[in-house]
Design a protein around this nucleic acid. Sequence first.
DNA 1: GAGTGGTCTAGACCACACC
DNA 2: GTGTGGTCTAGACCACTCA
Lengths: 250, 250
Amino acid sequence: MSTTPVNLALTVDRSSPVPLYFQVAQQLEHAIETGRLEPGSRLGNEIELAGRLGLSRPTVRQAIQSLVDKGLLVRRRGVGTQVVHSQVKRPLELSSLYDDLLAAGQRPTTSVLRSATGPASAAVAAALGIAEGAEVVTVERLRSAHGEPIARLLNHLPVGLVRLETADLEATGLYRLMRAAGIILHSARQTVGARAATAAEGALLSESEGAPLLTMERVSFDDHGRAVEYGTHIYRATRYSFEFSLLVRP
Amino acid sequence: MSTTPVNLALTVDRSSPVPLYFQVAQQLEHAIETGRLEPGSRLGNEIELAGRLGLSRPTVRQAIQSLVDKGLLVRRRGVGTQVVHSQVKRPLELSSLYDDLLAAGQRPTTSVLRSATGPASAAVAAALGIAEGAEVVTVERLRSAHGEPIARLLNHLPVGLVRLETADLEATGLYRLMRAAGIILHSARQTVGARAATAAEGALLSESEGAPLLTMERVSFDDHGRAVEYGTHIYRATRYSFEFSLLVRP
DNA sequence: GAGTGGTCTAGACCACACC
DNA sequence: GTGTGGTCTAGACCACTCA
């Protein structure tokens, strides 16, 4: 009992369809976010917690483990479980520029520059793992916030996965449309770099030729392991940067 | 039995100090990496697997779950567990430029441009969460590969965490030195952007003034939640880009 | 030595996908 | 209906940390 023993009012509702471990994890996470559980404070040990909640120890462990995976708690054998001192923001997600801008309080707008179906180039086919010349949908969009251009988004998708109507593309983000079409995203491979703008790119993005651009290339895979999207995007370096947290693999 | 039932020779050694679930996970991972378990192939169901190994179902589940977390397997209720089709490389790690270059077969070299102890500026103090004017170690390094400059690395660390000898800094990476000093890294917050090189930066990195640079700013935290390092780095865009995988949170 | 998390067991019932 | 993973229980022993 070297540090404060925290007294939390935890409860579980066994009639709820929400899994018990998840109920516990939610309440702990909420207590951490609101500061009720202070950074560095110790959770009671697992057996005592389980007894207090009327749950088995493995169930309580599952709840705690999920928060450890999120980076909110730290466990040390022989010591106990503590709330991490630093606020860990969300670890890296498959970032959607549209959602990022929304979250930042900007009002993202999109204009579709091009939307066409045609044979895949060698580079696109290689990225998507399909045959060269196979049909792909190509979409080029200009994403703005407050009327200022932010990025040019160029995407290629295998045909038949999702219907991309211009109206939908201008109303929301591509990932939302894909999810709405039943595509379950699983993983992605990204490359982030920088280069100078060409004259055409500069004109499109209200930058001068040679201005630094942030580039991002990404292939996304669904839960079957199929490549479902290949994007090559450019961002105005003066208006955008990638910000993310990450956890160190234990 | 819609797809091939895979027959794997799995064994566990109960006299080993390696946890049973970990032994199983290792063998499955190895079978996947060597192609013995083909992408898309199904694992037998958990109960059958447990019976075959003489383990309980939760233990087998723990092994499978660890591979699901790594992105190697996909589970679907009512369907089964399958090997993902696409090879998922390692999800994002706390990337060390030194290790990245090593892994790429380059021979990274480092020259220490500056190494000093002094009071923290306001920006550095804010990033590290310490008082302005508190003592910090500042290290500026030039990282090269094959004699070509790649990046200028500027780091600030609270004093007393790790002794940074110039010889060590020129022989290996900062993160390795920190780990060797007993610092357990837990998480980091990164921002990646781009900007044009100043004249001095261009001269240092063999680029011209105005050339696009990739920038990375990072604060790292240890398992106690203390900020242990703050870095502001610039990379030649023509010679370096960030490449990483990521898993979509389920 | 006392207290903690780490691992493991041998069951059980439920929810969902597919035929 | 059948088979799968999802959740849960009530114990057990071990390994590590710290006083």
